[in-house]
Design a protein around this nucleic acid. Structure first.
Length: 319
DNA sequence: AGTGAGCACTACACATGTGG
DNA sequence: CCACATGTGTAGTGCTCACT
């Protein structure tokens, strides 16, 4: 079985409406270089996009991950973004994001290549009951991101995701003699002369500080203009961008099985990677086309495009 | 008519970032 | 500088409906 009839396609990718469980079966084994996705979380509050309850959640998500394992190339990576949650009626954390991680490594032979933590400083203090009303917990502003691989050495290159040096390090690089003595420190760290080499940037840490605010973006503006609700839970483009740069090369293929508003697809497109997006909700995927089209689309053009995507049985070519 | 289960809906209390 | 974004959990209210 092969994938056919995407809702829309672009220079580099195709977006498909449907259940990822079925669509994954249409992909060839070992064909995907990176699967990055953020599934609906096991939250207490019911979401419009349909989340599964905590107890059943781990098994529900596991079904998808089994199929991801098959389509992933041996050097490929599976990056899974999971938000934390509380147990029902107790100020006690759910362990669901850790349970799924352990199950994936124990039962599917995934390796935990590295755990990442996405810190969103602009998150509102929540959950309200424990944090704002009773004031017995701090605000939850970190998501766990599991970087899983099929083999011990998935393709990865940290040189592609270097971050700017700090002001202090910039000064050190300008005048190393004045700023440090190469010698062994009390901690046992051997800080040598090579420490003063300029490597073009600092090695990033596994704490990703990325604010999730998207005020007045083209996507939001066009959703408003066309009078359609935007996807209520989008991740910032910088998040998939980081992992695509880190774990793939131009020409590789990136897959998001819970694509939502297809942030992953846009990130991949801008980095010249092929991409495939699966999303069950046709309206979410239809609005995601706004991310790819001309910035000067007016209200009626946005509406026309949306209507076309919602009704047409043929693939719409964007660009 | 009264009761209670089950459901949908709502108030509550808060921080930080983006983009025009 | 302003307008407007943003993966929350609990308890209370009020409604419908089955049952007595």
């Amino acid at each position: 079985m092969f994938l056919c009839c995407p809702l829309y396609n672009t220079d580099y990718g195709s977006a498909y409406v449907g259940n990822a469980l079925e669509l994954l079966d249409c992909l060839e084994s070992n064909s995907i270089d990176l699967v990055i996705t953020s599934p609906p979380f096991a939250l207490q509050r019911e979401k419009s996009y349909g989340n599964v309850e905590q107890e059943a959640y781990v098994n529900w998500l596991f079904n998808f991950c089994e199929k991801v394992y098959r389509v992933l190339a041996p050097h490929g990576s599976f990056v899974l973004d999971l938000g934390g949650a509380y147990q029902s009626k107790r100020p006690v954390r759910s362990l669901y994001n850790y349970r799924i991680l352990i199950k994936l490594c124990d039962e599917l032979d995934f390796r935990l290549a590295e755990e990442f933590f996405w810190y969103n400083p602009s998150k509102l203090p929540s959950p309200i009951e424990w944090v704002n009303k009773r004031k017995i917990r701090t605000k939850d502003a970190v998501n766990t991101i599991w970087w899983l691989s099929k083999t011990d050495n998935p393709k990865a290159n940290v040189s592609n995701v270097l971050v700017p040096y700090s002001e202090r390090m910039k000064k050190l690089l300008q005048n190393p003699e004045k700023f440090y003595q190469p010698k062994e420190r009390p901690s046992g760290h051997d800080i040598g002369k090579a420490f003063a080499n300029n490597n073009g940037g600092a090695i990033p840490s596994n704490l990703l500080q990325i604010p999730n605010t998207e005020s007045g973006s083209r996507y939001i503006q066009l959703c408003k203009a066309a009078k359609i609700g935007a996807h209520p839970a989008r991740f910032p483009q910088k998040l998939p961008q980081f992992f695509i740069n880190f774990l793939t090369e131009p020409g590789d293929t990136v897959l998001d099985i819970f694509a939502g508003s297809n942030t992953t697809g846009v990130a991949a497109e801008s980095l010249q990677r092929h991409w495939i997006a699966f999303e069950q909700n046709r309206s979410y995927l239809a609005t995601s086309a706004f991310r790819f089209v001309d910035a000067n689309l007016n209200q009626s053009q946005a509406n026309t495009l949306y209507t076309q995507l919602m009704s047409s049985s043929q693939t719409v070519a964007l660009k």
